[in-house]
Amino acid sequence: MLKRLLSYLYPIKIHTQKSTYSKTIEITWTDGDLVMDSENTNYSYGSLQRILKLGLKNIGFEKIKKTQNILLLGVAGGSVIKTLIKDIGFSGKITGVEIDSEMAKLANQYFKLDKIPQLEIIIDDAFEFVLKTHEKYDLIIVDIFQDTTMPNFLFENYFIDRICFLLNNKGNILFNTMLLNQADNIRNQKLVSEFNKDNFIIKTVPRVEKHNELIIIEKMN
């Protein structure tokens, strides 16, 4: 409790460990809340939670609340899961896919994800998972980073085609991307401009954070 109170004055780091995928994982009390960070960016809670909440709001809280099956690719500390359940009131099934087993352990330890009955965490590579799953989803959230790097497969046509295939009618994909240089901006522009699928629409959400851009894909029917 003392550390939490002191965190309103300055951040208090309570755990640090090395990560195969993210260099370093840090758990810190900041302004009375626990946040999860990598060496160079916020992973859960903090600014990331605000970004994804904006994307969910853009899709529509009431629409999401009525859905049944959500897929989250990239779990980290699970802040978007808390947003879905506490802020939106989503009561359906959430499947979270996380490649880093150590991060999943920390998420359970500090953010109590293992206490959420409607959540299933699967330790797997996101690309491999979407190739294997036979489920269809009402909402797919793509939030995959390795520190400040995004794996190249996320922007390959085959991956985009596959996650579009996994959407139910009227479903949405919320894709969180990081833009650190002009090449990243061109990459996103290329994805949006070249996206041409019957029965789908794509758009970007005006940025609230300088280095993050949200892309939303919707399946019409």
Results as ranks from 00 to 15, higher is better:
Y110H: 11
K136C: 10
K105W: 01
T20S: 15
K18Q: 15
I163P: 09
A104G: 01
S101E: 13
D87L: 13
D143V: 01
I14A: 14
I99R: 03
L5K: 04
L214H: 04
N169I: 04
A104F: 08
M220C: 12
G32D: 08
D161Q: 13
S47R: 09
K23M: 03
P151H: 04
G46K: 00
G78Y: 03
G77K: 02
L54D: 04
E120D: 14
N42P: 00
I14C: 13
G74V: 04
K219P: 09
K86V: 07
F145C: 05
S91Y: 06
R4A: 05
Q118I: 14
V142K: 09
L154W: 01
F129C: 05
K82T: 04
I217L: 15
S47L: 02
L73Y: 02
D87K: 15
Y110M: 11
N69Y: 05
L5N: 02
D138Q: 08
P11D: 05
D114Y: 07
K18H: 15
K115D: 06
D33I: 11
I201L: 15
I64L: 08
T95G: 06
E218R: 09
N172A: 12
I51M: 05
K63I: 10
Y45E: 03
F175R: 06
D125N: 15
I81T: 08
F145A: 02
I217F: 12
K219S: 09
T28G: 07
N199H: 13
G96R: 02
V208E: 11
L113H: 02
L113A: 07
I88N: 08
I123T: 13
F159C: 07
I51P: 03
G55P: 09
Y21T: 03
F155D: 01
I186E: 14
N168M: 06
F153E: 05
Y8K: 04
N40K: 10
T20K: 14
D124F: 11
M178N: 00
R162H: 02
M150F: 03
P11T: 05
S47K: 10
